[in-house]
């Protein structure tokens, strides 16, 4: 029985989107982080973690979003990080991002940034 990653010959596959995309910075960082984690897990474990993503979720995620799930799953399984730590760090990021985008701050930053070139 084929698992969700085992795509060869799936008959419902449609047109191939050939649009070229440069990798986003976060995707490059993610690739670097994954390769830097060789001490914690090997590439076969990484593939297995991707394959184990629940099928409905697998279908909706982008290629590198699947990597994030695999990375997180393995680091937690191996005891390198905990789910709580990651959630907590996300909260810190959210708080900072929100603070930075208070309307008045955003406007003053934008104006400040343009002064040099426009005047």
């Amino acid at each position: 029985m084929s698992k969700v990653h085992d795509r060869g010959g799936w008959s419902d596959a449609g047109f191939i989107d050939k649009t070229e995309h440069d990798l986003a910075m976060w995707e490059k960082n993610l690739m670097a982080v994954c390769s830097a984690c060789a001490a914690h897990f090997n590439v076969d474990e990484f593939r297995r973690a991707i394959e184990d993503i629940e099928p409905d979720t697998y279908e909706t995620l982008s290629y590198f979003e699947r990597w994030v799930i695999a990375l997180e799953t393995l680091l937690i399984q191996k005891g390198v990080l905990t789910l709580e730590e990651i959630d907590q760090k996300m909260k810190v990021f959210e708080a900072r991002t929100n603070r930075q985008h208070l309307p008045d701050l955003a406007v003053s930053h934008r104006q400040g940034g343009h002064n040099d070139s426009q005047i």
Binding site: N29, F64, L75, F93
Partner: peptide, 25 residues
């Protein structure tokens, strides 16, 4: 790691998650 987040407030949940993991490591 945070500067990545700050540059793009539209960053997706998973992109932020990746940045959080990177920062922790």
């Amino acid at each position: 790691a945070h500067s990545l987040i700050a540059e793009d407030p539209e960053l997706s949940f998973y992109a932020k998650r990746a940045a959080a993991i990177e920062a922790l490591l």
